[in-house]
């Protein structure tokens, strides 16, 4: 019988695979580190033991591990948001960019980078704060406009306004960039998505976002099922449609804002991995959401690994890799969905 919930065994299996991929990503890079050294360094530092001589401590603990953590958390968060949005808006093409939140967050970050918005003593806090602020502001604006269009907060009005808002935000971004002068390179790199400057603070911020907002999303799996079948149907079976939609949209936009502020716009993760997960576990969100969480993390880790390794020592932007792989994967999945039905 097809199970309703994500079983403990499945969770354990996914966790083990994720852990394996994470270790692999810490080991490989422009300089490869032996697996034993990696495990020793992480184990000993977690339990406060001295790290033996000869182990590349700084590469493992200061560069690779925080980055791997950030990548895994971002991937999980973006994928979870994509899965939730595809269910909520009943649209298999929905993700952060459809709602306009990614574009809003990017605009905030670009403004911060171009005009040098900083918080003294906290590097990157300016960019991060502005991205989160703009993500939330965009959502509020989109909801306000959609509400003005029709009082029931109908899904299609939200998508329509989101797409229009994305275009608007992109043009504003171009405008800001044209005034940015010599900062143009860092801005461009950032808009393509990059997690190269990760540190443990970022990882902690992502983890906090994922536990709180992601938790809210995971708790709404049943409601998402109802929405995915149809908004009207959701109302009729007893879902408090407006409240649930608002709660989910706010959680999703905060989480996307956090991800964008840390890693820039990383395209296609939120779009492709939930699709892939749906092919394996089916559309039931009680299984789909956890599956998307894991597959998003694994997919982004592998994409980041490819970005670091394929053309080493040159490092590609992670967004370039996800877009390249994602676009092809998306076409394949879409073709299969059309044929077989998923």
């Amino acid at each position: 019988m097809k199970r309703n919930d994500f079983s403990f065994r499945e969770g354990l299996l996914c966790s083990l695979v994720l852990l394996g991929v994470m270790l692999l990503c810490v080991c490989l890079g422009s300089v490869s580190v032996p697996l034993a050294d990696t495990v020793t360094a992480i184990w000993n530092s977690v339990f406060g033991l001295p790290i033996p001589e000869g182990v590349s401590k700084s590469i493992i603990l200061s560069v690779r591990l925080p980055r791997v953590l950030c990548v895994a958390l971002s991937g999980a968060a973006l994928s979870l948001c994509g899965a939730a949005m595809q269910g909520l808006l009943r649209n298999p093409l929905a993700d952060g960019s459809t709602l306009g939140v990614s574009a809003g967050a990017s605009l905030g970050a670009v403004v911060a980078l171009a005009f040098g918005v900083t918080v003294p003593g906290l590097p990157y806090a300016g960019t991060m704060g502005m991205a989160m602020l703009f993500a939330f502001g965009s959502l509020m604006l989109i909801l306000f406009l959609a509400y003005g269009l029709d009082r029931s907060l109908a899904t299609h009005s939200i998508i329509l306004i989101g797409v229009i808002f994305s275009m608007f935000a992109s043009s504003l971004m171009s405008l800001v960039i044209s005034f940015a002068g010599e900062k143009i390179k860092s801005i461009t790199f950032w808009t393509m998505g990059s997690l190269s400057g990760s540190n443990y603070t970022y990882a902690l911020i992502l983890l906090t976002g994922l536990v709180t907002c992601g938790g809210v999303i995971l708790f709404h799996a049943r409601e998402l099922n109802a929405f995915a079948v149809g908004e009207e149907n959701a109302l009729h079976v007893g879902v408090n449609v407006k409240r649930v939609k608002l709660t989910l949209l706010i959680s999703i936009s905060i989480l996307i804002g956090v991800c964008v502020s840390v890693g820039g716009t990383i395209a296609f993760v939120g779009l492709v991995t939930p699709h892939a997960a749906r092919l394996i576990v089916g559309p039931n969100h009680r299984r789909l959401l956890p599956a998307s969480l894991f597959s998003g993390a694994i997919f982004l880790l592998l994409a980041d690994l490819a970005a670091r390794v394929v053309l080493r020592p040159i490092e590609l932007s992670i967004g370039v890799v996800t877009s390249l792989v994602g676009a092809v994967a998306f076409v394949l999945i879409f073709a299969r969905t059309r044929k077989g039905g998923a």
């Binding site: 097809k2 309703n4 269910g87 009943r90 649209n91 298999p92 049943r222 099922n225 109802a226 995915a228 079948v229 149809g230 009207e232 149907n233 079976v237 007893g238 879902v239 749906r278 089916g282 559309p283 039931n284 039905g341 998923a342």
Partner: peptide
Amino acid sequence: RNAAQYGYTVEEIVQLGRYA
């Protein structure tokens, strides 16, 4: 107006009736 978008099983759709 009940058009399907995702491949839920018949049982999953009926289960939604118990949401309340």
